[in-house]
Design a protein around this nucleic acid. Structure first.
Lengths: 175, 175
DNA sequence: TTCGTCATGTAATGGGTTACATGATTAC
DNA sequence: GTAATCATGTAACCCATTACATGACGAA
C-alpha cells in the first residue's frame, strides 16, 4: 500500500522523502495519519534496491553528510506501477486501500476502475446491511451511545453508497 | 484496545472466545473488520494470567480435548476496567479507539465523557479544516477522483462534527 | 459419513510505530 | 549563535494477521 502510494506520487514528479510524506498525507487526507519516517525511508531504500526508483541528479550523498535524496521512477518502476494499477483484488476495495487506489484512478484502466467501484459498493452496502440489522435487532435494550455510533456509521455507509453510485454512473457515461 | 473491548464486553456477561468475537464485531460495527482469533485467544490468556478475567464453571478443559472456555471478569478486572474508563488521553479520540471508548460510555465518568467528546470534536474539526484547505488550494489542477474522495471525506467530517455537537449538548443537558 | 459450523489454539510473519540519533538550512 | 524546521536514517518493539492444526457437534 505504501509502495503503491510512493510509486504513484513519484510518477507525477521526482521528490525527496520528506516532501513525499507531505504529499502522502495530502493523498490520504485524514483517512489515516500519514506514514511515519520510520516506515517511509526503509521502503524507499527497498524500492531503490529493487530498481523501481532511482536517485536523480548524480550522487548528492557524496557531497555532505546528509542531503536530500531526490527519487524518481525508473522505467521498470513505471512498468511495475502500471501492472499494479491493472490488478483488481478484493483487498483493493477495503477501507485501507481503496482511497489510495482511487487517487490513481486516472491512470487505471477503465475496466479495472469499474470493477473496483463495484467491489467497493458491495463492500459498503454489506456493512450498511450489517449495521441496519444490528440496529433493528437491538431496539431498546442496547446502550444509547452504541446506538448513536451505529446511527453515524449507517449514515456514513448510506452516503458512501450514493457517492459510489454517482461515480459509477459517471464511468458509464464516459464510455 | 482489544483489551479494553474484551473487558467491556465481559463486564456485561461472561462469555467464551468465539461468542466474544461476534460481540466484538457488532461493537466495532464495520469500523474495522473484527479481530482475528489469532489475536483474541492469546489476549484472553494474557488477561487470565494477569488475573483480570477467570474461567467460569470449574475446569471444562479436563473433560474433553477442547471445550468452550467461558470467561468472566474478576474483581481485579472490574477495578482495572473502571480505571481504564476514568482515563482520558489523546489516543482515546483517534479513529482507532474512539468507537470502543464510546461503546462503554454509560460506565464512563461524566467528566471523562465530556473531555473525550471535546477531544474528538477538535480532532475531526482539524481534519475537516485540512481537507477544506487542500480542496481550496487545488481548484482545477488536481485529479478529479482525488477531489471526489476529498469531497466525501469533508462531508463525513462535517457530519461527524454535527453528530458530536448533538452528543455534547445532550451531555450538558443531562447534568 | 461427511460437511459445515462451532470452538480453541500456536508459530511465523508483517507492516507499521516509537524513540532515538544525526546533520543541514533558514530565520531571528 | 541559536532555535526551529527541514531532512535522513536505525533499532527495538507492538499489535495484529495469516496460515496452520486440532477437535466437538449437529444436520444432511
Amino acid at each position: 500500500m505504501l509502495e503503491l502510494a510512493i510509486l504513484g506520487i513519484l510518477h507525477r514528479a521526482p521528490m525527496h522523502g520528506y516532501e513525499l510524506r507531505k504529499q502522502l498525507g495530502c493523498l490520504l487526507c485524514g483517512h489515516r495519519p500519514a506514514f511515519s519516517f520510520g516506515s517511509l525511508y526503509p521502503t524507499l531504500r527497498r524500492l531503490q534496491r529493487a530498481g523501481l526508483i532511482a536517485e536523480d541528479g548524480g550522487e548528492p550523498s557524496a557531497s555532505a553528510g546528509r542531503a536530500r535524496r531526490v527519487y524518481g521512477l525508473s522505467a521498470a518502476g513505471r512498468e511495475h506501477f502500471a501492472g499494479l494499477l491493472a490488478e483488481v483484488t478484493p483487498q483493493h476495495w477495503e477501507d485501507d486501500c481503496f482511497g489510495v487506489r482511487l487517487a490513481f484512478f486516472s491512470r487505471t484502466p477503465p475496466e479495472a476502475r469499474l470493477r473496483i467501484l463495484a467491489g467497493r459498493r458491495r463492500c459498503v452496502a454489506e456493512r450498511q446491511e450489517r449495521i441496519r440489522s444490528t440496529l433493528d435487532r437491538s431496539c431498546e435494550h442496547v446502550d444509547h451511545y452504541t446506538r448513536q455510533l451505529q446511527r453515524l456509521g449507517l449514515d456514513g455507509a448510506e452516503r458512501e453508497v450514493r457517492w459510489l453510485d454517482e461515480l459509477i454512473e459517471a464511468e458509464h457515461r464516459q464510455r
